[in-house]
Nucleic acid binder design. Structure first.
Lengths: 173, 173
DNA sequence: GGGACTTGATTATAATTCATAACCGTTATA
DNA sequence: TATAACGGTTATGAATTATAATCAAGTCCC
């Protein structure tokens, strides 16, 4: 839709005394109307997603993890012994792009590539101890700050309903 | 989070007769577990958003409009006489990036920049007749194919609830 | 066993998107 | 009138997403 990270600073520029206006009833430059746009799910979805990611970044800033990196660590933790292709595919990351991402995580000693003995082409991915520790801290931060805030805003029931609908869309659409 | 456009092709590779396995109970390479990841709103949000945009693109393909371009046309239609900064800001587009985007729309004769007589620095944006026509067709396509499909999947009430929650997040978070 | 084919990881590379700083002409203000 | 602020633009860089090609290792099959 659009919607970059840049705050939609609309703020009608704090009422100044006045402005020269053509003549007829001064329009006084009010806030813009989104109109039907606000009824479009894609638009709302994108804006919400940006906000959520922004907040995620903030909450987990001390650990320097992006949402993408977090998702990789989560997946490695839950699925030890898988190779790059499997992890990348389930996250929707293209294999070529996953290489640099793993390089980053591995250079920070959060995970490691281990040449498989079965199939010496493939790299088994594992969390390091540090990786597990960082992930644990990240989960705590996310739960305590990020998801908690959402629960507060929407209420647990609504939050669950939202999650379910999003999952439905992701799966069935 | 991650989640590129690439389909998370997990498909466990159609059962072949067998495979050499280390020894102990063959693990048979089953689908990966998302685990707690599926409980994280950001993850679900991102995946849903990608699906929605993908479908939007498909539905409106005959008109060659991206979600971002669509949102601009919608906003111009609802808010005639505004300048670039105002439009860009309310959509969260950075002004520098908006220039090329407008160049594209203007070169297709969907909108026009008009030098304001009040303030000769600013460009008033207006939809052309063609722009209005294209927008009208786009709205029809989106309503008939895209949003209709969502309604079908979620039901009108749920769809409305989803929209409301997303708007809440975008606004208050 | 050896050639043809497939697969996992990688490189190279391009297109798109998002972000920042600097600039020019115009307007407001001290 | 000089200075600052503003709207639009350029230039540019980082990050994200995508495709094709390469290399080594495995599978298939005669």
């Amino acid at each position: 839709m659009t919607v970059s990270k840049a705050a939609p600073i609309n703020a009608a520029k704090a009422s100044r005394p006045a402005r020269k206006e053509p003549a007829a009833a001064a329009v006084e430059s009010t806030a813009l109307q989104l109109g039907e746009l606000s009824e479009h799910l894609g638009y709302a979805l994108k804006r919400a997603q940006l906000k959520i990611f922004e907040d995620f970044l903030r909450c987990v800033a001390p650990l320097q993890l992006t949402p993408a990196q977090f998702s990789v660590l989560m997946l490695l933790d839950k699925n030890p012994g898988r190779n790059q292709t499997e992890i990348a595919n389930t996250l929707g990351i293209l294999r070529p792009n996953f290489v640099a991402m793993l390089d980053g995580l591995e250079s920070r000693d959060l995970c490691a590539r281990i040449r498989s003995t079965n199939d010496r082409r493939s790299h088994i991915l594992v969390l390091t101890d540090k990786g597990r520790a960082v992930l644990a801290r990240a989960k705590k931060l996310v739960a305590a700050k990020h998801e908690a805030r959402l629960n507060e805003l929407l209420g647990p029931a609504n939050r669950a309903a939202l999650l379910a609908m999003l999952a439905t869309i992701a799966k069935e659409f």
